[in-house]
Design a protein around this nucleic acid. Sequence first.
DNA 1: GCAAAAGTGTTAGGTATACACCCATGC
DNA 2: GCATGGGTGTATACCTAACACTTTTGC
Lengths: 223, 223
Amino acid sequence: MKKAPEKFRFAAMAVDVPVFGLVGEKLYCLVSTVNRPPHYLNKFGFLGGMIKSSETAEEAVCRVLFEKGNIKDLYLEQLYTFSAVERDKRNRVVSVAYIGLVPPEKVLTYKQDEASFKPIDELSSLAYDHDEILKVSLTRLRGKLSYTTIAQFLLPKSFTLTELQTVYEILKNTKLDKRNFRKKILALDILKDTGKSQEGVQNRPATLYSFKSKKLEELNLVI
Amino acid sequence: MKKAPEKFRFAAMAVDVPVFGLVGEKLYCLVSTVNRPPHYLNKFGFLGGMIKSSETAEEAVCRVLFEKGNIKDLYLEQLYTFSAVERDKRNRVVSVAYIGLVPPEKVLTYKQDEASFKPIDELSSLAYDHDEILKVSLTRLRGKLSYTTIAQFLLPKSFTLTELQTVYEILKNTKLDKRNFRKKILALDILKDTGKSQEGVQNRPATLYSFKSKKLEELNLVI
DNA sequence: GCAAAAGTGTTAGGTATACACCCATGC
DNA sequence: GCATGGGTGTATACCTAACACTTTTGC
């Protein structure tokens, strides 16, 4: 594969990937510290890096997450391409942003020197245009929650209906009726009863469910 | 603005823009002939071109559509970024694809040497990865039709309810009940009666409506 | 037995669907 | 007066939303 003619190769192409995880009542996002004087001093930013000439954008995302965050095997989807001329004040960098989602256990056990999960309400004034990327990400997440099975990627393999309901409540910032939520979600026929129950809880153990399909599915109904 | 360091500038960044318009019962798309031996011989392809160092992707789209197709002032939205390494067999070119929508009169009056509107069922075996871009475009269009006011950009400023219904029927490839469609669309409170009616038609003249908002709005209900 | 979360049904109001005939206009 | 598409209402089935108490478990 030849390179493009020099005159067209003015920009670098990057990927940036906010990785989200939900623990308890809080949404977390993976960030690392960005220190690039003079413009970006001790700010948080998502993991990101340059796309290589042999890679697709998605391959670059996987490589960057593994190299810089030791994260792999997660749900990824392309979010949007950010191309504002001054989005990186140092150079022209066009960024293809992706969203990553991980289940709670990955957030809880995460231990790396360079990156960590922070509650999103503690993220403001991020490096580059990452404030905007965060905003677009959350809008996308909220939207897809309503008409797809994307919630599965924020949950453990098996989970209780209350946990699933919490995903909706936190991300949509709303309170749902337990009985109605259960009726609706079970009627969608996307879950299966694992036959198991919670163990070691102090209250009545809840039935554990899992998604019938491990892929993102579109729903007919809106939750 | 400095250029990115040379080692990162391996690829060219392009935009590609299928522009759609609906006339009668057919969806049309703007294409031009691509002749780039040895890989692309006399194929159709969407309008596209390289992003310049001073431009955002959207600015490049506007410039390219105007320069190569003499089209401006249309609805545009970013579709997806296509980055397969071999998507352009000649060089590494990453493309940020957009969708454009124009009203029927722009399709009907379109006359340019280099580009023309073709019915989409006549488009196959397009240049580059444009077959895939077309597929993704149509999926997006169909999806957004259901929960946004995107239909407005495929219609004249004022239109009949039957014309609006036809947009849904053609793009979703379905037949809708006239009475139910009218009830539903009027209940959404997104249209206003212009007070005018069709003229010069051989049947009872239909009331002309327009959208209250000229921007893309999200709907609560699904059509 | 108490604390904590799980689990479960009914009713009323609203929405979606199915369906057929008269109306206004031009020729 | 006829051909053409415009415009309208109702009844039924379904879905949605509101609402509170009993069950199971660990301690």
